[in-house]
Simulated scan of single mutants.
Amino acid sequence: MTVIKKEQGKVGIYNNAGFQVEGSFSANLDGLNPKELFEASLGLCITIVLNRMLERDGVEVQDDDISIEVNAIKASDSPSRFEQCNVNISLPQHFSQEYKNKLVVSAERACTIGNTLRRGLQIQTEIVEK
């Protein structure tokens, strides 16, 4: 579970371990705005899947060998939503093209966030008493 609340004039994002990251109402400022968090969620999910696959395959990589860049593009019509996510995955050059393709296909299949976005989900909102 994630909790978002404002304290001391700042929006905080918390989990059961406590404060994790500052939220922001605008892009490219201190903290992350909703679009950046959305992109980060997809990118982190793909990163986790890739790392698990590399561990399974016994492939060691340096920390900076793999990077994921996600750019969510807003729809021009209503309702306000993202209509596309462009994901760029940078993998080590010494990996064969066949292995790179295998990693990407497997990551697409195993990423929970990606699967959710592709298939949609129901959102239930309710008011609760404090």
Rank of each mutant, 00 (worst) to 15 (best):
Val61His: 10
Ile4Val: 15
Gly43Ala: 06
Met1Phe: 10
Glu39Thr: 01
Pro92Arg: 05
Lys100Tyr: 05
Gln20Ser: 09
Phe82Thr: 01
Ile46Arg: 06
Gly120Asp: 06
Cys111Gly: 03
Leu121Trp: 11
Arg56Thr: 12
Gln8Glu: 15
Pro92Val: 05
Thr47Pro: 06
Asp30Glu: 14
Arg81Asp: 07
Lys6Asn: 12
Ile73Trp: 07
Pro92Glu: 01
Cys111His: 02
Gly58Asp: 04
Ser76Gln: 15
Met1Gln: 11
Asn28Met: 10
Val105Asn: 13
Glu39Phe: 05
His94Ile: 05
Ser90Pro: 03
Leu29Met: 11
Ser80Val: 13
Glu60Trp: 04
Gly43Cys: 05
Ser41Phe: 03
Gly120Ser: 06
Asp64Trp: 03
Val61Trp: 10
Ala27Val: 03
Gln124Met: 02
Ala72Pro: 02
Asn51Lys: 15
Gly120Arg: 03
Gly12Phe: 07
Gly114Lys: 12
Ile123Pro: 04
Gln97His: 02
Asp30Phe: 00
Val49Lys: 03
Glu22Cys: 03
Ile13Thr: 10
Ala72Lys: 04
Gly12Gln: 10
Val87Lys: 00
Asn33Asp: 14
Leu121Met: 15
Glu39Val: 06
Gly58Ile: 01
Glu7Pro: 04
Gly23Trp: 01
Thr125Val: 15
Ile66Asp: 05
Leu91Thr: 11
Ser96Trp: 02
Ile4Ser: 13
Val59Ser: 00
Gln20Trp: 02
Leu37Ala: 02
His94Lys: 09
Asn15Lys: 00
Arg52Pro: 07
Phe19Gln: 06
Cys111Val: 00
Val49Ala: 04
Gln20Thr: 05
Ile13Trp: 02
Tyr14Pro: 03
Thr125Gly: 08
Ala107Ile: 08
Phe38His: 07
Ile46Asp: 01
Gly114His: 12
Ile113Val: 15
Glu55Ile: 10
Val105Phe: 06
Ala17Glu: 15
Ala40Arg: 00
Leu117Asn: 07
Asn115Cys: 00
Gln93Glu: 14
Tyr14Val: 10
Lys35His: 01
Phe38Pro: 06
Phe95Ala: 07
Ile127Cys: 04
Ala75Leu: 07
Ser96Thr: 14
Phe25Val: 11
Ser76Asp: 15
Glu36Ser: 04
Ser76Ile: 12
Leu117Trp: 09
Arg118Lys: 15
Asn86Pro: 10
Lys5Pro: 03
Glu69Leu: 11
Ile68His: 00
Asp63Met: 05
Leu50Asp: 04
Glu60Met: 08
Glu39His: 07
Ile66Gly: 02
Phe38Gln: 03
Gly114Ile: 01
Glu83Phe: 06
Thr47Met: 12
Asn101Thr: 14
Cys45Pro: 01
Glu7His: 11
